[in-house]
């Protein structure tokens, strides 16, 4: 299937299925899901609870192994009946940035170090990592809080730092799990505008799971999932 790799498609899933359990206890979380995501796109993953949104996000994030199908990320086939890379954490470090509902910043690191840690893990020197972290915090207009610890930040500030961390290693794919759930409508709008800016400027693909109707209009495409099936793709 490696012939199917299209360099201009950042995330490509073909007939991906995932089920949990066997026999009567079998639950099909994803059924033959196929999607293509292009650079610069901001995609919304919508659906009721239990529809398979988080499972899909976990599969794209190489956290959960599909039961069948084919997955390519940033031009590299990563799953074809089995994982093709032995070190999935390294794959995540290189290709994927994560943004969480509750931002998940490391509480004992200040804002700069929370961003720099990704670069440290990628092998950057401490000085270079900090310089890049400060640059990102400035880009996200939260550099005045760079010495603050997560507990000292407001929800909006914390989410900006989390976005900075997700961008630190210049990933082309950014996965966001309810990125605006903890924010009011104004701040949610600001965060989504920021993500759109990042996607446009860095030619990254952003996939966000959300229930937040206020931000539906900020997506380029919306994939709607129901009972593990991709029902509609809305522009």
């Amino acid at each position: 299937m490696s012939d199917d790799v299209q360099p201009d498609v950042l995330v490509k899933l073909k007939n991906v299925s995932k089920h949990f359990g066997e026999g009567d206890a079998r639950v099909d979380a994803l059924r033959d899901v196929s999607i293509d995501v292009y650079p610069g796109q901001v995609i919304g993953l919508l659906g009721p609870s239990g529809s398979g949104k988080s499972t899909l996000l976990n599969v794209i994030g190489c956290i959960l192994e599909p039961s069948s199908g084919w997955v390519s990320l940033d031009g590299e086939v990563v799953y074809d009946g089995h994982w093709l890379r032995p070190d999935l954490r390294k794959l995540r470090l290189e290709k994927i940035g994560f943004i969480f509902q509750s931002h998940n910043l490391i509480p004992f690191l200040d804002c700069t170090d929370n961003v720099a840690i990704v670069l440290n893990l990628a092998g950057f020197s401490s000085m270079k990592a900090k310089a890049r972290a400060i640059e990102l915090l400035e880009y996200l207009e939260v550099d005045q809080r760079r010495h603050a610890f997560p507990a000292q930040l407001s929800g909006g500030e914390a989410q900006r730092v989390a976005i900075a961390r997700a961008l630190a290693n210049r990933p082309r794919i950014i996965l966001a799990d309810e990125p605006t759930a903890a924010l009011d409508s104004v701040r949610a709008g600001i965060v989504m505008d920021l993500l759109r800016k990042v996607a446009a400027e860095q030619q990254a693909a952003i996939l966000a799971v959300t229930h937040d109707e206020k931000i539906y209009d900020r997506f380029d495409h919306i994939f709607y999932l129901r009972d593990g099936r991709l029902e509609t793709q809305k522009n």
Binding site: G61, I63, D87, R89, K90, R92, L93, E94, F98, F100, N104, I106, P107, F108, I117, V118, L121, A122, R165
Partner: peptide, 16 residues
């Protein structure tokens, strides 16, 4: 636990 999960998710190896 949550910090460790986050570290794993962002790519921290086991040795870290």
């Amino acid at each position: 636990i949550r910090e460790i999960a986050t570290l794993k998710l962002i790519g921290a190896p086991d040795r870290t």
